[in-house]
């Protein structure tokens, strides 16, 4: 899954009829230190996420595995709102990881 932050909403009236009723949020990808990255993704919300919340986004065909996105042309769904993130293994950005 992808770590991201909800930064806004997308409204669209003229769209694929299967998408009627789905709520589209814009999620900006975050790195492990919560620093925003360039990429954003439009994801359907399945857990009631609000703007500003840190969320997880499932992508690809797994995104259709919810009651809200089943059989819909959707490849990104917000499926969790992050409470806490704990990076216990600090890599001093070396190229190889210790075993």
């Amino acid at each position: 899954m992808l770590l991201g932050k909800v930064i806004g909403t997308v409204w669209s009236t003229r769209k694929d009829e299967n998408l009627v009723g789905a709520k589209f949020l814009i999620v900006r990808q975050l790195d492990l230190e919560y620093k925003p990255k360039e990429s954003t993704v439009i994801a359907v919300d399945s857990v009631g996420a609000g703007v500003g919340e840190v969320v997880l986004v499932a992508q690809g065909s797994s995104a259709r595995q919810t009651s809200i996105t089943k059989n819909k042309p959707v490849d990104a769904v917000i499926m969790a709102i992050v409470d806490k993130l704990d990076i216990s293994v600090k890599e001093k950005n070396k190229e190889t990881v210790e075993v």
Partner: peptide
């Protein structure tokens, strides 16, 4: 594995 995430509100 470099860390863990807690998320009570999820699908």
């Amino acid at each position: 594995v470099i860390g863990t995430i807690w998320a009570t509100r999820k699908y």
